[in-house]
């Protein structure tokens, strides 16, 4: 009989060390929040990139990217390996600093707002010693009261259809389920922008299709801006409003995908777009 993960030492014993969890008045009495505010859906954040460059030594990976992404749009970035698409994504979420140019987060009116982005990687990067719910709660950051964090986690787990796994160890989940937990963790703080770095790359074909549907549904329900990096052109045209082709650090094609959601595999118009994109990616235009 496995011990409930909520009663596990890493969840329980360390709670005693949760330094920021309680606040005290100067006379020593504890401040108890009456009701924690729920994490409200925040407005999606758009992007404005002007002349963004990134070089590692002499290697110029990004050579002046200009890009406007309106708030709430789903953009896919495709390109060959080494075209700089993952580097661009890491710049967007602040994992690296650009060597030139500017990256701004903007609201609907085009005014600058604070950067507010989360990222999902190809591998889920879950903490194996935390329950699924506690892994999702990591996305809320430090100093959030435990009860509140777990409630929020369970809400967003419902969104990715994993509520019944909240107390499981990640090791008990399938690859697709783990990636859904990673998605829930990225979304639990309701970010204005979600960056996806080939999030479905390691999944099998069938799981990938159902994950694409899930991603589309979650995006439409929560209304964040999504930037997806992928090498899979089919995936790009099925998910995104707009596909950008990157080659040698520059935008070579910016293609709108006007088809309404949900989209179906085998749609001839999508196949047409797919062909154009593939030609552009392979440099045959």
């Amino acid at each position: 009989m496995p011990v409930s993960s909520y009663l596990h030492p890493t969840a329980m014993v360390w709670d005693a060390f949760e330094l920021q969890e309680r606040a005290y008045f100067p006379d020593g009495t504890e401040v108890r929040p009456i009701a924690e505010p729920p994490v409200l859906p925040k407005a999606p954040a758009g992007l404005r990139l002007r002349g963004v460059e990134k070089a590692f030594g002499d290697n110029r990976v990004l050579r002046g990217i200009d890009l406007d992404v309106p708030a709430g749009q789903f953009v896919a970035i495709v390109g060959k390996s080494g075209c700089g698409k993952s580097t661009l994504l890491r710049l967007l979420v602040g994992l690296d600093e650009p060597t030139g140019g500017e990256i701004d987060f903007i609201d609907d009116g085009g005014d600058r707002v604070a950067p507010d982005a989360r990222i999902v990687f190809q591998e889920p990067r879950l903490l194996p010693w935390f329950s699924v719910a506690d892994n999702v709660a990591v996305g809320l950051g430090d100093g959030v009261p435990k009860a509140f964090a777990r409630r929020e986690a369970e809400l967003v787990l419902e969104e990715v259809q994993l509520s019944e796994k909240a107390k499981e160890w990640p090791a008990k989940l399938s690859g697709g389920q783990r990636q859904r937990v990673a998605l829930a963790r990225a979304l639990v703080s309701r970010p204005g922008l979600l960056a996806l770095d080939e999030p479905l790359g390691a999944l099998d074909a069938l799981t990938r299709i159902s994950m694409q549907q899930l991603l589309t549904r979650v995006w439409r329900e929560l209304g964040f801006t999504a930037v997806l990096v992928t090498h899979d052109v089919t995936e790009a045209v099925h998910l995104a409003d707009r596909v950008i082709v990157l080659d040698e650090g520059q935008v070579t094609l910016d293609l709108a995908v006007p088809q309404p959601h949900p989209r179906h595999h085998g749609d001839p118009e999508l196949a047409l777009l797919e062909g154009r994109l593939l030609a552009a990616v392979l440099g045959e235009s």
């Binding site: 979420v93 994992l95 591998e123 990067r125 990591v138 950051g141 430090d142």
Partner: peptide, 13 residues
């Protein structure tokens, strides 16, 4: 290392 990077991304002290 990936987990450590993840923790930093999520703003862990």
């Amino acid at each position: 290392r990936d987990l450590v990077e993840m923790g930093k991304i999520y703003g862990m002290s």
